[in-house]
């Protein structure tokens, strides 16, 4: 069963990461784009708790750090998603979260991921991280993620609940 659960998580992560760069990023929406992978991490953390949320966030982030066409220092997305996965998991509810709570988590999680990622970039002297770029990214990611959340979160949560028996830790 464990192998199957791990496989399901990886399928979700890989599919979201590939759709992100092949489909979503090609839309070239104004200011930025939604972050599909972050929504997967949040949905999973909400269904499975902070420890599993942090773990999935780490691996999903690491995958996003190396999947082409990644061109940044590896580990930054892993760091940001680990933080978001852990925090979102603190609000775990094995049955179902209210729509309002989910929206608040997506809003906060999206903002946190951008700020942590940008903060690490600032520490590393990344020329891409300017006040303007960070503001744009923050605004776009938060708005687009909240819009996409009702479509992505239930699907992922459903997967997580079906294949992760509740109560077994």
């Amino acid at each position: 069963m464990t192998a199957q659960r791990v496989a399901i998580r990886w399928v979700l992560v890989v599919v979201a990461a590939i759709l992100q760069v092949v489909v979503v990023n090609k839309w070239h929406l104004p200011l930025g784009h939604p972050d599909l992978l972050l929504l997967v991490v949040i949905a999973f953390a909400l269904a499975s708790g902070s420890q599993r949320g942090a773990l999935l966030g780490f691996w999903a982030g690491l995958f996003a750090d190396v999947i082409p066409p990644a061109g940044h220092i590896a580990g930054r997305t892993a760091f940001a998603y680990t933080v978001v996965g852990f925090l979102a998991g603190l609000l775990e509810d094995p049955e179902e979260n209210s729509v309002f709570a989910t929206i608040v988590v997506v809003l906060g999680g999206s903002a946190a991921s951008v700020l942590v990622y940008a903060g690490l970039g600032g520490l590393l002297g990344d020329a891409r991280v300017t006040a303007g770029a960070t503001t744009h990214s923050l605004l776009a990611t938060v708005v687009y993620d909240v819009v996409l959340a009702p479509f992505v979160i239930p699907v992922v949560a459903n997967f997580a609940r079906r294949f992760e028996p509740v109560g077994v830790r």
Binding site: Q20, N25, D35, P69, V114
Partner: peptide, 13 residues
């Protein structure tokens, strides 16, 4: 493909 999950970078595959 374009960019990354987090944005900021302008890259393509």
């Amino acid at each position: 493909a374009y960019g990354s999950s987090m944005g900021f970078e302008e890259t393509a595959s």
